[in-house]
Each structure stands twice: as structure tokens, then as C-alpha cells.
Design a protein around this nucleic acid. Structure first.
Length: 628
RNA sequence: GGGCCCGUGGCCAAGCAUGGAUUAAGGCAUCAGCCUCCGGAGCUGAAGAUCGUGGGUUCAAAUCCCACCGGGCCCGCCA
């Protein structure tokens, strides 16, 4: 809050001077200066005016600065024109510090922007229920979970969905393996069921297709059974989907994600949502029956300017993959009436119930699912074109661009080195993961290795602590490492995953944040810091540069979060949390806290930092532990 | 062929929306320092950059425009 006040004040000072000088209004940007000698904030207004007036920026800056109403300075102490043309402002630090700390301590949710409450659906994970999550899936889970956490912090009503494609060919492949190729349904001792199904059965069934193409026919028949819900195939599928989900969820929980609802594709089909939506699309003129040409007999949707039309219903009457997404999206936004029955799938570690769309009557005491104001779906960037078709179809039904958000993320690939360690030789700089061919690294394995490393480190540093404590801490550290690693990079860029780098717990990592938090807690504990007095009673003079930087950084939280919400860019959240921690560590190194004449003030700053970092860690899904 | 995205030190990467202060953040790796003092998963410093290439716009370009090069993805009556 305090930071936006600062900016607003600087902006106002410049604008009123411009008005007084009868110059034209310009859109200025208030930004931070590159170094403290220049002050803290600067305006580029004179550059903007320079072009219009045909005069040197410096001249204009001087004029503006001379015409400021100095009596209205509040948080700003001084303004001066710099040779380059910038107008630089210095902060009245005592005032600003008092104001900033008051804001932090008076607000339990400091830095969280205020928002009108809406209902938000976030769909993520949605891994085919025939295998274990690999490290690429974790990127999806963590992005989705973090977005959901941010939405919850804003006070929105958030429902987290995991879409279960239980009728697709991937499940059919497993069914075929069990029915026709003699694979056992039991995992070998010591192997997680989802690993066994994915690593062994699924991969080998796909190899078998190459040797025996006739199996394809069998797969087709099984797929039909799954879609229509009959026969032995459907029965086995229901069981294996359940069993795999149980295992997949353990992995998701381990990285800190929980859900509200598992939404089965089979139920969407059986509730005949598509039929309803299809009728409405026909009536709206969105789809038409193609006559002649290569799409003869298909129902197609117009593609737009340079886009080819898209088949939604094949000439044999079956729907394509993309068409299955439309009714689901329509349901999310309340464009079709909710007809699902719901049942409880399980209870999650936090105690929260996990619901599923039920195969039978279900129960009545379920929450109202669907009908959200906004639906955010975390899906790979490669599906952008299809998602745009979904969006387009929704527009015909009354919603679209603004309500249906495809949060597109790039893949996780394996580094050359890590691929080689797995026995995969690639010519390229990185190797794409592929479930079908067995080229991937399982999330559980990565987590286990991180856990092992974290446990060794924790043990070494805390020899007096018991095993139980060490395990708990190591688990939290592994979680922080994996989440931060998956979040810190631009969502649009491929992450080249390297096992050795991932195992590094130093530098720009999750454990660094946890360490900084524990350090602050430790200082406060050692100082016996309990409660603060009114801020007026503190000595706020002689601030060290590092104190100033930390305070300024803390005061920026709301602005940073607003930007993160507007852009749905979790990497910015990592960067801000990291900057907070870095500022604190710099302050810690330079300024004695406990044995200082400014002890009380510095403890208060430390406590403010602790609170803010805790909030940020919470958004990131990282556990703030008092000691690690 | 058409469309979208990416290209910044040895490696990873921020900045690009809204062009300016510069010496282009930060991390990994390398080298040199820092625990009589609050947690060394830390801090300080050194070294390391034609911001893919070439044009253009501008007083000013990593940032805007155009072309090209390299990499990835999408363009199925597959899912």
C-alpha cells in the first residue's frame, strides 16, 4: 500500500506542476532509480514532453521541478532534475518507514490486492490415468495449484478440477494388455502401481502394436466399450483408472496440490452434454453439415480468416477429441445445467474431501460444482489451436475470451546429460519426454532423490534433532525445491530439466527461501521478540541503506501481486519472493539486529519480513518452517 | 508452405508490455575473501556479454518495425 502511495504522490507532483506551467498532459512512468545516489523514484515525464515541445528534457525537468508545490510533499522529501532529464525523488524515510510498517502490521493479508469475489474454476493435472506422473506433468500441477492458491488468497470461491480421460486410447492400451497380452494387474513387489502400469505395461503394449498391427482392431473395440460403458473392457477400465488415480494423487499431494473434483470423461459422455451443446451450436449457426469435399458428411465449425474449418463430428457420427472439450467447458461456465451425480472419491491429507462425478446415484451433500465466472485451464501450449476452437464455440453459447482462459505452458525436456544417465542418446541439446516410448523421468523418482539429498543435508546441520523431525523437514525442502524449480521459469519457455542442477539446494531455489525464513525466525526467537509497541515509540532515524532497500521491497508486494494476477505469471511470484529474501539476507549481513542501538526497530523490520515471506511462501505452496 | 513461441556471458536466465540514467539483474560452475558476534542452504568481491544476424524508425534500441538464420510447437474424419 505504501509503495503505491509513493508513486501516486510523485505522479501528482509532476502533473500539477505541468498543469501550472500549462504544458500538455503526458503519460509518465514512475520507476525505481538504478542507484540510491539518484534518489529512489524517478519520472520520465520530461522525455515524454520533450518530443512534443521540441525542447531538451533537462530544461523541462528543471522547469517542472521548480514549479512543484513543496508544501504538499508527504512521503516524498525532495525532487530534483537530473542532467539526463529524469526528475528524481527522494523518500522521507522516517515517514515512509512508519507508514509501511503500520500497513504491514495492521493487515493480516498485507499485499493481497482487493478484488470483487467471483467463482473461479482452475483445472490442472489431467494426466491420462494409465501411468505415473513424469516431471513434465509436475509443471502443470504446480502452475495450476499456484494459480489456485493466488485466487483463493484474493478471496475468490475456487474449485480445483482434475479431468480424468477414462475413455481414451491410453486406458484402452492397458485394458488390452491385461485382456489379450497376459500382463498381471499386480505390480511387482516394491514398485508403485502407476509406475508399473506406465513404465512396463503401457510401453510394452505400444511396442506390441508395431509387431502385431492386428491388435489395433482390438483396441478399437475396447475404446468403444469404454465410451459406451459396457462389457468387460469398461469394467476393467473402471478399476484400473481408480487404482492409478489413487497412486497419481499421492504424487500430487506430495507436491502440495489438492483438488475438489475429479471429472470423468465417461460421465460427460453419459450425461449427454455434447448432444445438448451440439443442438445449440447448430441453432446458433456455429456448425454446419459439410457436403462434398474432403469433409463430406461431417459436421464442421468455421475456422475464421486463415483457419481451415474444423471437424467436430465425423461422418460416422462419432465426435472428435476437441468436441469433447466443448461441453465440459460449457459446464464449467454454467452454460449447461449440471446433471452430474457426485460421490466422494477419498479424503485428502488436509482432511479436505475429494469428490468425483459418480457412476451411479451419488450423494446429495455435495458442493455446487461448475457454473463459474471464470475457468482457467492449464494445458500445454501445443493445444492452443484446439483451445481456441473451444473458445470460439463458447462464444456462440454466450461466453468466451474473457471467461475461458487457456493457461498455456511449455514442456519440460530432459537435458542431454540427464537423458544419457537414463540410457537415452540424443543428438540435440535436449530430449523431449514421451510417455508412450518410455522416454521420461518419473516425478516420484525426482522427488525421492531430492528428499534423500535434503535429508542428508538436514541431518548434517541438525545432529541433535530426532529422525521424525528430520524427515518432515526434508520432505518440505524437497517440495520447495521441486515447486520453485517448476515455477521460476517463464511459462512460455521449455524447461530443460537436469537432475544434477535440480539437486542443487543453493542459490535461486526454494530452500533458499525456506532458509531465509528460518533465519528470521531464529533471530526473533533469540531476541525473545514477542510484541511490538506503537510505531511512534521507535527510533526510526539513521536507516541503513540495506534497511531502506528491504522496506522498499516489502512495500511493493501489492503492486507485484497485482501484476502477477493480471498476467497469470507465477515466475514473477518466485522472483519477488526471492528478492524479498535477498534483501533480508543483505540487511542481516550488514546490520546487527540484536546487539544494536536500533534493536527494536530492526526486530520489527525482521518480523515484518517474516510475515510477508510467509504470505509469499503460502502462495507458492512452500511450507514456512521455523527451522530447517 | 501457413501460423504461434523462443534465441541475452561456459551453462541457466531477468529485463522487452510503457525505448532513456548503464557499467545489461540474479543463479550455477570457476577463482579470492568473510563464523571471538543474531543460522555459512548465507554474504562480499574477481573474472566472464558482438543482447541470433542484417537493415529501419528515433536525439536515444536488448526493448519498436521489417527481413533473414537457428530451435520448438501447431496446421488429422488420432487422442
Amino acid at each position: 500500500m505504501a509503495y503505491s502511495q509513493l508513486r501516486a504522490e510523485a505522479e501528482r507532483l509532476v502533473n500539477s506542476a505541468i498543469e501550472r506551467l500549462k504544458l500538455q498532459y503526458v503519460r509518465q512512468i514512475i520507476s525505481r532509480t538504478p542507484s540510491e545516489e539518484l534518489g529512489e523514484l524517478s519520472s520520465n515525464a520530461s522525455f515524454m514532453l520533450s518530443k512534443a515541445l521540441g525542447r531538451a528534457p533537462y530544461e523541462i525537468a528543471v522547469e517542472i521541478t521548480n514549479n512543484m508545490d513543496r508544501s504538499s510533499f508527504d512521503l516524498i522529501k525532495s525532487a530534483e532534475a537530473h542532467q539526463t532529464g529524469y526528475i528524481n525523488f527522494r523518500i522521507d524515510w522516517e515517514k515512509f518507514l512508519a507508514r509501511a510498517l503500520e500497513a504491514i502490521f495492521s493487515d493480516k493479508k498485507y499485499g493481497i490486492p482487493k478484488a470483487r469475489k467471483i467463482k473461479v474454476i482452475v483445472e490442472h493435472t489431467s494426466v491420462n490415468p494409465n501411468k505415473a506422473l513424469h516431471i513434465g506433468h509436475v509443471r502443470n500441477v504446480v502452475i495450476g495449484d499456484t494459480v489456485a492458491r493466488i485466487m483463493k488468497a484474493l478471496g475468490h470461491d475456487v474449485q480445483i478440477l482434475n479431468y480424468i480421460d477414462d475413455t481414451g486410447v491410453q486406458v484402452a492400451d492397458l485394458v488390452l494388455g491385461f485382456l489379450h497380452l497376459g500382463y498381471s494387474r499386480q505390480a511387482p513387489a516394491g514398485k508403485k502401481l502407476d509406475h508399473y502400469y506406465g513404465d512396463d505395461v503401457y510401453v510394452n503394449v505400444n511396442r506390441a502394436y508395431e509387431k502385431e498391427p492386428s491388435l489395433q482392431e482390438k483396441r478399437k473395440e475396447i475404446t468403444r466399450q469404454l465410451e459406451e460403458g459396457y462389457g468387460e473392457g469398461a469394467k476393467i477400465a473402471e478399476e484400473i483408472v481408480h487404482d492409478v488415480l489413487v497412486e497419481q494423487l499421492k504424487t500430487c499431494w506430495r507436491v502440495g496440490a489438492e483438488y475438489d473434483l475429479l471429472n470423468y470423461e465417461s460421465q460427460i459422455l453419459r450425461q449427454r452434454y455434447w448432444e445438448e451443446v451440439f443442438e445449440r451450436l447448430k441453432n446458433a449457426g456455429a456448425v454446419k453439415l459439410a457436403r462434398g469435399g474432403k469433409f463430406d458428411g461431417c459436421w464442421v465449425m468455421e475456422g475464421g480468416e486463415e483457419e481451415e474449418e474444423k471437424v467436430l463430428v465425423r461422418s460416422d457420427g462419432t465426435t472428435v477429441y476437441a468436441a469433447k472439450d466443448i461441453p465440459y467447458a460449457a459446464w464449467k461456465l454454467g452454460l449447461v445445467r449440471d446433471r452430474f451425480a457426485y460421490d466422494i472419491f477419498t479424503e485428502q491429507p488436509s482432511g479436505k474431501r475429494l469428490w468425483m462425478t459418480a457412476f451411479d446415484k451419488g450423494r446429495d451433500d455435495h458442493p455446487n460444482f461448475g457454473s463459474a465466472d471464470i475457468a482457467i485451464t492449464v494445458i500445454g501450449v501445443e493445444q492452443t489451436r484446439l483451445q481456441n476452437f473451444v473458445k470460439k464455440a463458447l462464444e456462440y453459447l454466450g461466453k468466451g475470451e474473457r471467461e475461458y482462459i487457456h493457461l498455456a505452458y511449455e514442456k519440460v525436456a530432459l537435458s542431454k546429460k540427464t537423458a544419457r544417465q537414463l540410457g537415452i542418446e540424443g543428438q540435440r541439446e535436449f530430449v523431449q519426454m514421451k510417455g508412450r516410448t518410455g522416454i521420461y523421468i518419473n516425478a516420484d523418482d525426482v522427488f525421492d532423490m531430492l528428499y534423500k539429498k535434503a535429508k542428508e543435508e538436514t541431518k548434517r546441520r541438525n545432529s541433535e534433532k530426532d529422525e521424525q523431525w528430520v524427515k518432515q523437514v526434508a520432505e518440505a525442502i524437497a517440495l520447495s525445491a521441486i515447486r520453485y524449480e517448476m515455477l521460476k521459469q517463464d511459462i512460455k519457455k521449455i524447461i530443460v530439466f537436469d537432475m544434477d542442477e535440480a539437486l542443487n539446494l543453493e542459490g535461486d531455489t526454494g530452500p533458499y527461501l525456506m532458509y531465509s525464513y528460518a533465519r528470521a525466525v531464529s533471530v526473533l526467537r533469540k531476541a525473545n521478540y514477542t510484541n511490538m509497541q506503537p510505531i511512534k515509540q521507535y527510533d526510526l532515524s539513521d536507516l541503513d541503506q540495506k534497511e531502506k532497500e528491504l522496506i522498499l521491497c516489502m512495500s511493493r508486494m501489492e503492486e507485484e501481486l497485482q501484476n502477477i494476477i493480471d498476467t497469470l505469471a507465477p515466475d514473477s511470484l518466485c522472483r519477488y519472493a526471492h528478492e524479498l529474501a535477498t534483501s533480508f539476507n543483505a540487511f542481516y549481513e550488514r546490520c546487527p539486529i540484536i546487539n544494536s542501538e536500533y534493536r527494536e526497530r530492526r526486530l520489527m523490520i525482521t518480523e515484518a519480513f517474516r510475515r510477508l515471506l510467509a504470505e509469499n511462501l503460502d502462495l507458492l505452496g512452500i511450507k514456512a518452517m521455523d527451522a530447517i
